[in-house]
Amino acid sequence: ENVVSAPMPGKVLRVLVRVGDRVRVGQGLLVLEAMKMENEIPSPRDGVVKRILVKEGEIDDTGQPLIELG
């Protein structure tokens, strides 16, 4: 899985990584606010952040691509 998608609709509060960062499975990639709760979205695998497809403050839909890993 190279693309991390939104598991729920919500607002992107914080992006915790930058392009080029090495990430490990379970590491937080970004924080979504949904139903007044903050949810940290973890990396599904080890890899390198290739692209960040959303910006802080954006509203996303379920299934929307958020981050691409390489």
Rank of each mutant, 00 (worst) to 15 (best):
Thr62His: 09
Pro42Trp: 08
Leu66Ser: 03
Glu38Gly: 05
Arg18Trp: 05
Gly20Glu: 03
Ser43Trp: 04
Glu40Tyr: 12
Met37Pro: 02
Arg45Asn: 06
Val25His: 10
Pro44Lys: 05
Gly57Glu: 06
Ile67Gly: 01
Leu53Ser: 03
Glu56Pro: 12
Val17His: 01
Arg51Trp: 07
Met8Asn: 07
Val15Cys: 08
Glu68Trp: 12
Glu33Trp: 15
Gly26Thr: 03
Ile67Phe: 07
Arg18Asn: 10
Leu32Ile: 14
Val49Gly: 01
Met8Gly: 09
Asn39Cys: 15
Ile41Gln: 01
Ile59Glu: 11
Leu32Ser: 00
Arg18Glu: 10
Leu66Lys: 02
Gly26Glu: 02
Ile41His: 02
Val31Asn: 01
Gly20Tyr: 05
Arg14Pro: 00
Pro7Leu: 07
Gly63Thr: 08
Glu40Cys: 14
Asp61Pro: 09
Thr62Ser: 11
Gly70Ser: 13
Leu69Gln: 02
Glu58Thr: 10
Val12Gln: 00
Glu38Ile: 12
Val23Thr: 03
Ala34Val: 14
Val12Tyr: 00
Leu29Lys: 00
Arg51Asp: 05
Glu56His: 08
Pro7Glu: 06
Met35Pro: 03
Arg22Tyr: 14
Val19His: 04
Glu56Thr: 10
Arg24Ala: 10
Lys36Glu: 14
Glu40Gly: 04
Asp60Arg: 15
Lys55Gly: 09
Gly28Arg: 08
Ile67Glu: 01
Pro42His: 10
Glu1Gln: 13
Gly70Leu: 13
Gln27Asn: 03
Asp46Lys: 07
Leu53Pro: 01
Val31Ala: 02
Val25Tyr: 12
Gly57Phe: 06
Gln64Met: 11
Val3Cys: 13
Met8Ser: 10
Asn39Gly: 05
Gly63Asn: 10
Arg22Asn: 11
Val49His: 01
Leu30Val: 13
Leu16Lys: 04
Gln64Trp: 12
Val17Thr: 03
Arg18Gln: 11
Gly10Gln: 03
Leu53Arg: 04
Gly47Asn: 02
Val4Leu: 06
Leu13Val: 12
Val4Ala: 04
Arg51Asn: 09
Leu69Glu: 01
Met35Trp: 12
Ser5Lys: 14
Glu40Leu: 15
Arg51Ile: 07
Gly10His: 04
Glu40Asp: 05
Ile67Thr: 02
Leu29Pro: 01
Leu13Pro: 00
Glu33Ser: 09
Glu1Val: 14
Glu1Ile: 14
Pro9Met: 11
Val31Tyr: 03
Leu32Pro: 00
Leu29Ile: 07
Glu40Arg: 08
Gly57Trp: 06
Val17Tyr: 00
Gly47Leu: 04
Leu69Ile: 12
Leu29Gly: 00
Lys36Trp: 11
Gly63Ser: 08
Ile59Ala: 08
Asp46Glu: 10
Ile59Asp: 09
Gly20Thr: 04
Lys50Pro: 01
Ala6Asp: 02
Thr62Glu: 13
Gln64Asp: 13
Asn2Thr: 15
Ser43Asp: 01
Arg51Glu: 06
Val31Trp: 04
Met8Trp: 15
Lys50Arg: 12
Asn2Trp: 15
Gln64Cys: 11
Ile41Pro: 02
Glu58Met: 12
Met37Trp: 07
Arg45Ser: 10
Gln27Ile: 05
Val54Trp: 07
Asp61Glu: 14
Ala34Trp: 15
Arg22His: 14
Pro42Gly: 09
Val3Leu: 12
